[in-house]
Design a protein around this nucleic acid. Structure first.
Length: 633
RNA sequence: GCUGACGUAGCUCAGCUGGUAGAGCAACGCCUUGGUAAGGCGUAGGUCACGGGUUCAAAUCCCGUCGUCAGCUCCA
């Protein structure tokens, strides 16, 4: 009798060849109901898999990421089944689970409309009600080829042609698909789904191949989960920075400048506050700010290697018979500032920061709001240091990153990207560099993921991701070690204590990344309700009637004297109307003043999203809002 | 760049199978001076993205261009 070890380390004897699902039933009925798939000795299997040997076993439910993946993958089969019933001529590509749901690529001579999606969804429900089991079958390559040729599924045939080893197919009712599995036990487990849209996708991601239609969907075992998910998507739509940017007069886009925002006065306040903030932090940390030319001769880009590798993304101009380009990056030019003088080891680390405007000719299809623009403002820096200084410099940057993102209540996570196959430079240096990054992460007690071979060709890097208020992850800051690109290509050196020239190491780093993108992320994270220190309008003063306009003006003056961004709303409208409007503009404070307040030198404070806070002496309010602004609460 | 969808007033959108445009909100004016999320009445506002074509007639049909969006792709 095989012994199975459960996650709580208890052992269970089970009869030979007991299906895994029976083991789940022994543990608890609810587990048997919720389990989607089983992990035996670390590998995933169908719940019907018989237990034949001693093993460690774990049942995965939808709460487990891998359980989810299986659930979505099975959902994608269910969808394909429905599509086949409705469109028998459809040919199938691949249908995997993705981060948030699943998709299936299909080849069909018709553009699917939202009405088609609804019909497919309906059909999926019908199939789900039939509750047919997913049945795994091992087949030979020849049989598999024969089957899918007969089914006239050329894409499957192509996939099979490239397969070695065991080939499995899964049947579910009258639908059979090539699949590695595993799957949930039966179609009835797949209950609540929503097809979210379609898009084009090339077969095997290659633009030389035929464009298939990709149908996206998401599914959940509980109705509430689907509802919550759809609500989250709604919420994301409501938070869309393109919409909020327009509604709050922060920035706009126009056809005359695709891929570049027009910053409006209110957005510019946010931009300036962020810039001021980051500059102050960099000053405190002994960075030196530089600014390098935006339009530079091609020679520079040839030297840096961009001309060879990045030219398609550069805006190139002909000026006086010479070829120039708008800079797509700051790094090459920063080396000129470094080389301006002979550098001593005593000068290092030399921390050059630059808030530079960069132009990158992103392909038109990549553009999207503030998230992908052709003109970006980067809070860049290049730290020229000695090898023995790397650790402390990385330490400082990590501290800065944590401080900055903590301020906005973003959850920060770190990823180390290691040496890629096409890496340049001495392998010993790479080892040393990766070790420095690891050590810096360890010093800061940071748990981090590793992205193997995902470093830049010139050095390993730490990528910093943040998670926003509705759980979405964004890659923002980056810390890259560079032993090769700048130091070698630009032949950089400093004079060491023995009077000999040495190569410096360069750390490329950005905190916000680009202001454009960061403001976009921040807008969505905060749903447009910026903290007082960033809010374009920090307080609106609302007199109840014209009789208190003068008092309201004195309140405005008092606040302006303290550099509070305040607006007087003395329009001929009712209080409720004005409150509604300032509330939708997400202004942190409204100060309502009437007879009571005028007589006692007070203001009635209404806080955004919280409501009436009652009357308080004007002087007290001024103190508290000032503190809030200074302390960036 | 590729595929698809879309482009009508400042915004959100209507306008069926062709007969030269409509609503709500916003704006402006008047009335109303109102204590915590929309007071009333009225006025103005559009070369229907742009350029061609079909037609007696085009916002509507066709072609092209530009732009936006969803993806794909790319990302030193």
């Amino acid at each position: 009798m095989p012994k199975v070890k459960l996650p709580n380390n208890s052992l269970l004897d089970v009869p030979q060849s007991t299906p895994a699902i029976e083991v789940a039933r022994k543990i608890s009925r609810s587990l048997a109901e919720d389990a989607l798939v089983v992990k035996i000795d670390g590998k995933l299997f169908d719940l019907s898999t018989p237990i034949t040997n001693d093993c460690a076993i774990e049942f995965l439910t939808f709460d487990d990421p891998q359980g989810k993946e299986v659930y979505w993958h099975s959902s994608s089969h269910l969808m394909a089944h429905a599509i086949q019933l409705l469109f028998p001529e459809a040919k199938f590509g691949v249908g995997p689970a993705i981060e948030e749901g699943f998709y299936y690529d299909i080849d069909i001579n018709k553009t699917l409309t939202p009405a088609d999606l609804e019909a497919i969804e309906k059909k999926m429900h019908e199939i789900s009600e039939g509750d047919q089991p997913f049945v795994r079958k091992v087949v030979t390559k020849d049989d598999a080829l024969k089957f899918f040729k007969e089914k006239s599924d050329p894409y499957k045939v192509e996939i099979i042609g490239g397969l070695d080893g065991t080939i499995t197919i899964y049947g579910e009712g009258e639908f059979t698909d090539l699949c590695r599995g595993p799957h949930v036990p039966s179609a009835g487990r797949l209950k609540y789904f929503k097809l979210l849209g379609t898009s084009g996708a090339y077969w095997r991601g290659d633009s030389k191949n035929k464009m298939l239609q990709r149908v996206y969907g998401v599914s959940f075992p509980k109705k509430k989960m689907l509802e919550d998910h759809l609500k989250m998507l709604e919420e994301a739509k409501k938070r869309d920075h393109r919409r909020l940017g327009r509604e709050l007069d922060l920035f706009m886009f126009h056809d005359v400048a695709p891929g570049a925002p027009f910053w409006l006065p209110k957005g510019m306040i946010i931009f300036r506050e962020l810039e001021k903030f980051i500059r102050e932090e960099l000053d405190k940390r002994n960075y030196l700010e530089i600014s390098t030319p935006m339009l530079v001769k091609k020679d520079l880009w040839e030297q840096s290697g961009h001309w060879g590798h990045y030219k398609e993304n550069m805006f190139v101009l002909n000026v006086d018979e010479e070829i120039y380009s708008l800079k797509p990056m700051n790094c090459p030019e920063s080396t000129y500032a470094f080389k301006h003088k002979t550098r001593s080891y005593r000068d290092l680390p030399l921390r050059y920061s630059e808030i530079g405007r960069l132009h990158r000719n992103e392909i038109s299809g990549a553009l999207g709001g503030m998230f992908r623009v052709r003109q970006i403002t980067m809070d860049d820096a290049h730290i020229y240091c000695r090898p023995d200084q790397i650790l402390s410099e990385i330490d400082n940057i990590i501290a800065l990153v944590k401080y900055v993102y903590g301020l906005f209540n973003f959850e920060v996570s770190f990823k180390l990207s290691t040496k890629p196959d096409d890496a340049m430079g001495d392998p010993r240096l790479w080892e040393q560099a990766e070790e420095s990054l690891r050590q810096a992460l360890a010093n800061n007690a940071i748990k981090y993921g590793v992205k193997e071979k995902d470093g830049a060709f010139y050095g390993p890097k730490i990528d910093i991701q943040i998670k926003d208020a509705i759980g979405r992850e964004w890659q923002v800051a980056t810390i890259q070690l560079d032993y090769v690109m700048l130091p070698e290509q630009f032949d950089l050196s400093y004079i060491d204590a023995e009077g000999k020239p040495q190569r410096p190491v360069i750390i490329h780093r950005a905190i916000f990344g680009s202001f454009e993108r960061f403001v976009g992320i921040l807008t969505e994270h905060l749903a447009g309700a910026f903290p007082t220190w960033l809010a374009p309008v920090q307080a609106a003063v609302i007199p109840i009637t014209d009789d208190y306009r003068d008092y309201a003006k004195s309140v405005v003056t008092a606040l302006k004297e303290q550099r509070v961004r305040v607006e007087l709303d003395d329009r001929n409208e009712k209080v409720g109307y004005k409150i509604r409007e300032w509330e939708t503009k997400k202004v942190p404070y409204m100060l309502i003043v009437g007879q009571k307040e005028a007589e006692s030198g007070a203001v009635s404070v209404r806080k955004h999203h919280e409501g009436d806070k009652g009357a308080t002496p004007l002087a007290d309010f001024v103190d508290s809002i000032k503190r809030e602004i200074v302390e960036k609460i």
